[in-house]
């Protein structure tokens, strides 16, 4: 398979759609252990990214599209998720550098770079009850599957499974990053909103890989 900028435009739009549908639920999760705006922030960021990327000329290179997404997300959101996803998109852009079309391999490296970017920006380790608990195992699982020769759709299936498990696991974690880290054991029993939105994004990417036949 290969991925063009046009494909990426559809991908970002699909992500934005799924996040929009989960907006209230994400706010509710954030209301329990944060400040209740995570759905709004993710929705605003994804809509802005989808709009900005969607308006691009299809001839433009994927790296530029990722950078446009990063900038749009960043300008739309002042919350924690702003710099985290903006960094993810910037690293995606760097991973896609100099390519006009992305191969499956490129696409996986883009995915891993996003996870890496989020982790570097937030300085969070797995187990600290953040979106890293979804992104890091997902990226690891996808790379593992790729290295053992699985085709891209199966790699993303593995990623989605790992993200879901990681997301659910945040429920029993204490928080060591973000607003929730100030609440002590009051956060036990609550899923981290950032991990929940990460799962939605990763699932949207998996669906995309599934149905894509470039």
């Amino acid at each position: 398979m290969t991925f063009t900028t046009e494909d990426l435009q559809r991908l970002v739009a699909a992500i934005a759609e799924d996040i929009a549908a989960a907006r209230d639920q994400l706010c509710e999760l954030d209301g329990a252990i944060g400040d209740g705006d995570h759905g709004l922030a993710m929705d605003a960021g994804c809509q802005a990214a989808a709009k900005a990327v969607g308006e691009l000329d299809a001839e433009i290179a994927p790296t530029a599209a990722f950078n446009v997404a990063a900038k749009a997300f960043l300008n739309a959101v002042g919350a924690s998720s702003g710099p985290l996803y903006a960094t993810a998109f910037m690293r995606a852009g760097a991973a896609a550098k100099d390519k006009q079309v992305l191969s499956d391999d490129d696409f996986l490296r883009v995915f891993a770079a996003m996870a890496q970017g989020i982790q570097e920006r937030g300085k969070a380790e797995p187990g600290e009850k953040t979106m890293v608990d979804a992104w890091k195992p997902a990226a690891d699982a996808a790379l593992d599957a790729w290295q053992s020769g699985k085709p891209l759709p199966q790699c993303f299936e593995a990623a989605e499974r790992a993200a879901r498990a990681g997301c659910e696991a945040t429920s029993s974690m204490m928080a060591a990053k973000g607003r929730a880290s100030r609440l002590g054991d009051r956060v036990i029993g609550h899923i981290d909103p950032g991990a929940a939105s990460a799962l939605i994004i990763i699932a949207a990417m998996a669906k995309f890989a599934q149905h894509h036949d470039g």
Binding site: L74, S80, G82, P83, L84, A86, R121, G122, G178, R179
Partner: peptide, 11 residues
Amino acid sequence: NYDGDLMNFEM
């Protein structure tokens, strides 16, 4: 000192 502020200023 808040994660959100720190990350936005760092960027």
